[in-house]
């Protein structure tokens, strides 16, 4: 499996897509942190205390950074996943790989592992970049660089917050992976993932607004469960959501039990992986 994983990572070498998407994510992270900071500087009227719970001062900025890492990262990594699978069909290299003596489950597993490595690096670098940005703005705002505020996260909780974010990105990435496998196309997978993400955001807001049985239908959507998981990242953060997020933030009473949401996301992931494997196993690979 190690040599298979090495082959997947070698394929990524020299591809521009991950680099371009990294720049996009870095730019949006900069906007997440420096935007409110510059706004505060420019306003000249509001106190920092009114602003600080929004985004750019540590430790409150952590939630904003992770919101952006999730909201934007999920979309960008879905593009990467779609490209990982779809371009192999587009170039016809799936055939070239499968005739080398690898079983289809191993080939698919290597692809998922390769995607996991690239995705983890992508999100970790983005998070680290966000931290660097917020260290700068916290210092510029002449605030102490500390996590030690009332209800603030402990140092051990910060990596956990990041892992929670990564976990919440997974279903969207695997959805794109599944769509690319189903349609043998990058464009169809990217299009399908984006449509799902945007439509989900709208439907969650509409169904939540209607209430009653309609609100219960939100259980069918990935985003409703993601909200419950990511809410745990809001330790010590006020009510305002400052990162780039495409879903409405639910009321506290509307949130699912995090453990139940975590399990639901795992089931989504299993479904997308299982369905991808099922399709890949039983279909012909044509030129």
């Amino acid at each position: 499996m190690i040599s298979l994983l090495a082959s997947e990572l070698l394929k990524v070498r020299g591809r521009w897509l991950p680099w371009i998407l990294s720049v996009v994510l870095a730019a949006l992270l900069a906007l997440t942190i420096f935007g409110p900071y510059l706004s505060w500087r420019g306003s000249g009227t509001q106190s920092l205390e009114e602003f600080e719970q929004q985004s750019f001062v540590l430790p409150w900025s952590l939630a904003a950074i992770l919101d952006t890492v999730h909201g934007v990262g999920a979309i960008l990594l879905a593009v990467v996943a779609a490209s990982f699978v779809g371009t192999e069909y587009g170039w016809g290299t799936v055939r070239s790989c499968l005739i080398r003596g690898q079983t289809r489950p191993r080939y698919l597993a290597a692809k998922l592992l390769g995607l996991a490595v690239v995705g983890l690096i992508f999100l970790a670098v983005a998070f680290a970049l966000g931290l660097i940005f917020t260290l700068v703005t916290t210092r510029l705002a002449e605030r102490p660089i500390t996590l030690d505020v009332p209800a603030g996260p402990s140092p051990a909780e910060v990596p956990l917050m990041f892992l929670r974010t990564v976990y919440a990105v997974l279903p969207y990435v695997l959805l794109a992976f599944f769509l690319a496998e189903a349609f043998h196309s990058t464009a169809a997978a990217v299009g399908g993932s984006l449509i799902y993400t945007f439509v989900e955001g709208i439907l969650l807001a509409v169904l939540g607004g209607i209430g009653g049985r309609a609100a219960d239908m939100r259980l069918l959507f990935i985003g409703h469960h993601v909200n419950a998981v990511l809410e745990l990242n809001r330790i010590g953060v006020g009510p305002i959501q400052a990162g780039f997020v495409l879903r409405p933030r639910p009321e506290a009473a509307d949130l699912l039990d995090p453990a139940q949401a975590t399990l639901a996301l795992a089931l989504y992931c299993l479904f997308f992986v299982g369905a991808s494997l099922w399709l890949f196993q039983r279909r012909d690979v044509r030129s």
Binding site: A6, S7, L10, R13, G14, G92, T93, S96
Partner: peptide, 23 residues
């Protein structure tokens, strides 16, 4: 195979290395 397929952004040698890892 008919119309052989490769990773166009990689060199000929890198393509063979990928297939070597698979073989």
């Amino acid at each position: 195979m008919e119309s052989p397929s490769f990773y166009p952004h990689l060199s000929g040698r890198a393509n063979l290395r990928i297939f070597a890892l698979l073989s």
